[in-house]
Each structure stands twice: as C-alpha cells, then as structure tokens.
Amino acid sequence: MDNEKIKLRLEHISQSYIVNDQIFDAAVDVSMEVRDSEFLVILGPGRCGKTILLNMIAGLEKPADGKIRLDGEDIQGSDERIGMVFQKRALMPWKTVMENVEFGLKIKRMAKAERRKIARKYIDLVGLQGFEKSYPDELSGGMKQRVSIARAYANNPEILLMDEPFGALDAQTRYAMEEEVQRIWQTEKRTVIFVTNNIEEAIYLADKIVLLTSCPAHVKAVYDVDLPRPRNTIDPKFLQIRKKISENTDLAL
C-alpha cells in the first residue's frame, strides 16, 4: 500500500470568488494525494469546497493558487485522462442512451461501428442492456446515473470524478447505486475521486476519506478505511468509524 504510485496530487490549492463586491474564500490551502486505482472520497458538509475542488481537477475552473499534478505533471485545463459524472442534468435529453454513452467517442471522431461496440460494452456493464434507444426522460433517476457512469467509463479515463452523483436520488435507490458503483469499480478498476456529504456513503465506498471543513474549506482529517468489501452499514466496526468521523464533522446548520 505504501509504495503505490501516486496518481494525482493537489498541492496547496486555494480558490476564491467575488460575490457582491466581497471576496469569498471557497477553499484554502487544500492538499491531498490519490493513489493509482484508489477509491478516494472527499467528504464535507454543504455544497462548499468539494464540488469546487472537483471542478478544478476536471478543468472547469482554474485554481486561484496551487498546483494539480497528474502522474507528476501539471494539468493544463481539461485533461483527456479525466472523466466526470455529474449530479444534475448529467445526460443530454435530446440523445438516446446509446448516443449519450458514445458521446465522448464521437467527439474523438471514432468510427461509428467501433464506438457503438465500446458503448455497448459499458451499457451492459451498468446493467442497462435493452435501453439503448430510450431517451433520458423515460428513465428513472438511478438509471440516468448509470448511463452517466457508462458514458464516463466509455471514454476510458484514468481518473473518474463523481460529483455527488446520488444526491438527487431517494434513499433506497441511493443504496442500490452505491452497491452498483462498488461492483463496477471492482470489475473495471480505475482511480476514483468521489464527492459526497453523506458519511455512510463515504465509508461504504472509500479506501480513503478526506474530510473537509465547511467554507472556507480546508482538510480537517484523512481516514483510511480498511474494512473488507462489500461493506455492511450495520456492522459494529462500520458504525465505530461512522461515529468517529461524524464527531469530527462540522455541523452545517
């Protein structure tokens, strides 16, 4: 575990915005390391900090300060090796499931037959065979997120970013999707950076948890989760870790 390659590194990242003529610090001096094929969860209250970090890694925003290094090199803007799954409005409603999943490949100008083949593989992986010709509005929330995951995977990223992908789902669908992600990740291992405000979800999925404070966000603690998979949310050891983290979390009233 100790000598594994560091895939992604955030070094002293800071971000601020100007809101109503005032400077608002979203993140201050955040540093973290992500190992290759690790499932890292960034946990934090509210909407602050975590999404912004993810946006910066994805290249949707530029940090005010600090560096992001992938495989030792600085990232410039949006990098091809990084894929992302969003929470809201993740799919394009005017495209079918197949067209959504193959989107990244079409942008790369891959030939139709080839990209259909790849897209089909990942549609099957997320368990949506038969739904290739459906439109997103015909699907349930959980199914939409599965398409989103398939689309990200189809592009063969080295790092997969997931921004509170299950935030808009009801509790039981969420549990089912957590199991799905776990299963998919074990089948096709990638480095995953997963953002959530749900402690249980974090402990269920993560190899390592980075706990952020509320805004201005900085790293409060880092937890290694060593439980065997698949994990049981009612297991006493699970609940112990949950208690430890929950006591350390800021209450975002």
Binding site: E80, M92, F103, I107
Partner: peptide, 12 residues
Amino acid sequence: QREYLDIGTIFH
C-alpha cells in the same frame, strides 16, 4: 444550460 456545456468541456 451551463451544465450541458460543461459536459462538452469534460469530453473535450
């Protein structure tokens, strides 16, 4: 919607 353009950015 900004979110759709973001998807475009992510996929280059």
